[in-house]
Structure formats: structure tokens, C-alpha cells
Design a protein around this nucleic acid. Structure first.
Length: 118
DNA sequence: ATCCTGACCCAAG
DNA sequence: GCTTGGGCCAGGA
């Protein structure tokens, strides 16, 4: 590949790559039986206001990540149809309880401690 | 540069 | 419980 092409990618990539890596670490730190919202993951990773990007990352690549533990504000599952059902099933299997449509956050909210994944 | 979109969020009504 | 409007950010067309 041409040199300037590589440089171009490296110049542009670092930020989002570092960000995604932080998101991944935060997500991996959520223990079984607990959940965190997109916004909380973003903030814990050091990027408040980047909740949409957490979703974008998960949409792209969720292999190797406990993706089911990331939910919308208030414990709402944001995936639609089958995908949503799968997430709910996975959470239930991990012992997470629901109150109607949402995760019982009072019971399963994960509180991030930055030292867990820094 | 502009416009659109998204596994978002939140305050109002 | 809704629905709406606004705000937020980056990536793609």
C-alpha cells in the first residue's frame, strides 16, 4: 500500500481506535448479573456524551464482548425484534430480572470503578 | 461543505 | 405510559 495512504489512516484513526478500546474495556468490566447504560459506559470510559458511539461500536463488533449487558437509559432494551429478544434471554440467563420491559436497574445497575479497567 | 442516520438521552406535555 | 423536540457526535453519501 502506498505510504501516504498508510499515513492518512494512522493520522485519522487513533482517536476513534483509542476510544473504542476504552469502551471495550469498560464493557468487559461489567460483571455477570449487572448492566450499564450506553451513556454510563461512555462516561466511565472517559468520553461523556459519546453514548451513540458506544452503540455504534457494538453494532460493528460485539464479538468477545458481553454486549447484552449494555442497555438503554432506564434499563430499556434498544435492540429490535429478534435481537432484542436474544438480549433479554441472555440477561435472564445471567440472573437479571425485569420489571415489565426494562431491566430492574435498582437491582442490577453496575457501578463503574475506573480502576477495574484502566 | 451539507444532509442524513444511528443498538442514544432527556425534559416536556 | 405515551410522543415530540432538541441536543449530542462521527461517518458516510
Amino acid at each position: 500500500m502506498m505510504r501516504h495512504e498508510l499515513e492518512r489512516r494512522l493520522r485519522r484513526a487513533p482517536k476513534s481506535v483509542a476510544r473504542d478500546e476504552s469502551f471495550s474495556k469498560a464493557i468487559r468490566s461489567i460483571p455477570k448479573g449487572k448492566v450499564a447504560t450506553y451513556g454510563q459506559v461512555a462516561a466511565a470510559a472517559g468520553y461523556p456524551l459519546y453514548h451513540r458511539h458506544v452503540a455504534q461500536l457494538l453494532r460493528r463488533t460485539h464479538v468477545g464482548l458481553p454486549w447484552q449487558r449494555v442497555v438503554g437509559a432506564g434499563g430499556e432494551i434498544k435492540l429490535r425484534f429478534e435481537a432484542g429478544m436474544e438480549q433479554r434471554t441472555r440477561l435472564v440467563m445471567e440472573g437479571v430480572k425485569f420489571r415489565g420491559k426494562r431491566v430492574d436497574m435498582a437491582e442490577h445497575q453496575h457501578v463503574f470503578k475506573t480502576w477495574d479497567f484502566e
